[in-house]
């Protein structure tokens, strides 16, 4: 008994920091479980690996195995839905890799405390890759929207509807509990919005934090889905960073943004 207690203390001293390090360095994002769509951190998925064989992958633990199978060409097996499920599992693994590309906690963090679920739209790049001024002046001069990223500029409207001309109807352009649905207008007071629960918009699914480009500055990675009539429920990703509290968010430079899902048909 006398020897047992020091051993226990020693074990605790050795293991606790390592657990802390792991939790700090490895992101554990949420996923939508296949079939059920539930919010989960891990899931099992059975995928065809040949004409007659199927294999179950435990995501995210089996991401490397899944990648090997994909490299072997297994992703082509199965029907249309199964092939899409291959992609989904691959997307989730790639997202995990994207988050965990640079292990270790960034020393500068101006994003974690920000309430992204109620964020002002104006804090985000309206169209990643295009300056707001250029977008307002000459949108045609902007490069095309980056695939796989949200594009708020598509909600911008040059003319306001007649019944919404009252100034008081114009509100701050912001998410509310992770949802933005409405129209964006450029007024004398800057960008203003009319919120409309029937209008198209974006829903923030999750906000993960990681240093995705290894610049020692913590980044926030927002995953969104478009909502509203006609919206394709494909996952969009918006990595954001800033190096001071007063800055607007911008895309972290030098990171390879993973593109998810199939190419539009």
């Amino acid at each position: 008994m006398n020897r047992f207690i020091p051993c226990l203390v020693l074990y605790a001293l050795l293991t606790i920091p390592s657990l802390g390090f792991t939790s700090a360095s490895k992101a554990t994002p949420y996923f939508s479980a296949p079939y059920t769509g539930e919010k989960v951190q891990q899931y099992d998925i059975e995928l065809p690996i040949s004409r007659h064989e199927k294999e179950t992958f435990h995501i995210p633990n089996d991401c490397s195995k899944l990648n090997s199978r994909l490299l072997e060409g297994a992703g082509h097996w199965g029907n249309r839905v199964e092939r899409r499920l291959w992609m989904k599992a691959d997307d989730d693994c790639r997202y995990l890799n994207f988050l965990n590309k640079y292990s270790g906690k960034a020393s500068q963090d101006f994003v974690t405390d920000y309430d992204f679920y109620n964020a002002r739209i104006t804090d985000f790049p309206l169209r990643p890759g295009c300056d707001l001024n250029l977008l307002l002046r000459n949108p045609a001069a902007c490069p095309p929207p980056m695939p796989g990223m949200p594009n708020f500029s598509m909600f911008m409207s040059s003319s306001m509807p007649m019944h919404q001309t009252q100034e008081e109807n114009l509100k701050d352009c912001r998410f509310e509990n992770g949802l933005f649905r409405g129209f964006i207008y450029h007024t004398g007071m800057g960008l203003r919005c009319i919120r409309d629960s029937k209008a198209p918009g974006y829903r923030i699914l999750s906000v993960d934090f990681a240093d995705v480009n290894g610049d020692d500055c913590q980044d926030a990675i927002l995953r969104m889905v478009p909502v509203g009539r006609g919206a394709r429920p494909s996952l969009l990703i918006l990595p954001l960073t800033r190096c001071s509290d007063n800055e607007k968010f911008s895309l972290p430079s030098g990171s390879d943004y993973p593109r998810f899902g199939p190419a539009p048909e």
Binding site: S32, P34, Y35, T36, G37, R80, V81, R84, L85, K88, R229, G230, A231, R232, P233, S234, G261, P262, P264, E265
Partner: peptide, 12 residues
């Protein structure tokens, strides 16, 4: 509205 949407929905 589109086949793409259906494909996405089929995951769930």
């Amino acid at each position: 509205e589109s086949d793409d949407i259906i494909t996405e929905l089929m995951i769930f």
